[in-house]
Nucleic acid binder design. Structure first.
Length: 259
DNA sequence: TGATATGTTTTACT
DNA sequence: CAGTAAAACATATC
């Protein structure tokens, strides 16, 4: 379920298990309709090593100081798996990086909405994509300006990757639930204190998910993520979880304590 | 069987 | 320009 925290957990798997190993080659899985680098671009990585990783919003980068970078976007259902030769090949494998010593890094993507591409310059890529500041890095003033300056629904603003990058549907709902703001509240009508509280909560929610390595079973039981069902009992008041559509996205909230 | 889905992009309209 | 809405992408799951 890839939003910023899930992307960061994936990035960490590369950082912890795949750096400083010479790339021997690539194995391409089912390629139809999957956006992968052309073979000649992949070939440029052969013989090099990944030495560092980076993440901006939901975009993962892996590369080296003087070599090419690859960027990975997990789309709706993508994930990264690290394994060793001799183990089971992950299902839905689209692209596997083969390192020396048998280490394998597989991009798997059941729904094929993700992509992997080679990028020359990370900062340039982020600029070209028009991404806003990373949601974990954005400061108080910038957050207040970008959210408070939006005339539309606050949730739509949170999800706008051009305003700030990394928040997706699940953690937008979670953050609004915990801050007590209705998803369809007009952002520019929110008092400054509430926007400040939302900023704190967004970073707290996603920081917690990262701390738990995006393992949802380790998240507190009173989080909305465990109760995203129409009609469920609210864990924060005596209200009832209700489903609505905001900005074309399914939104779960509690109308009793979110206003 | 049909509805729904965690993301992004494009197009069209207000 | 800011915002809304819908569709498309390809497939798995409930």
């Amino acid at each position: 379920m890839p939003e910023l925290p899930e992307a960061d957990a994936a990035r960490r798997r590369i950082a912890d298990h795949c750096l400083h190993r010479t790339i021997e080659g690539f194995t391409i899985g089912e390629v139809s309709h999957v956006d992968l680098p052309p073979t000649d671009q992949l070939d440029r990585f052969i013989g090099t090593q990944l030495t560092r990783t980076h993440r901006h919003g939901k975009y993962i980068f892996a590369g080296s100081v003087d070599g090419p970078w690859m960027h990975i976007h997990l789309g709706m259902a993508g994930s990264l798996r690290v394994w060793d030769d001799g183990g089971d090949v992950p299902d839905y494998a689209r692209l596997t990086v083969n390192f020396e010593g048998g280490r394998r890094l597989t991009f798997r993507d059941p729904r094929k909405f993700g992509h992997v591409q080679m990028v020359a310059d990370v900062d340039q890529f982020v600029a070209d994509k028009g991404l806003g500041p990373d949601a974990m890095q954005i400061g108080d003033n910038a957050f207040a300006n970008v959210i408070g300056g939006t005339r539309g629904a606050v949730k739509s603003a949170l999800l706008d990757q051009g305003k700030l990058a990394g928040i997706g549907n699940l953690w937008a709902d979670e953050s609004l639930y915990r801050t007590g703001i209705m998803p369809d509240a007009k952002a520019s009508d929110l008092p400054a204190e509430q926007i400040a509280a939302l900023h704190t909560t967004v970073q707290d929610v996603m920081g917690t998910v990262m701390d738990k390595n995006a393992d949802y079973s380790q998240l507190p039981r009173d989080w909305l993520i465990h109760n995203r069902t129409d009609g469920a009992d609210c864990t924060r008041c005596d209200g009832t979880i209700t489903k609505m559509t905001v900005g074309g996205r399914t939104s779960y909230h509690c109308p009793a304590h979110q206003t």
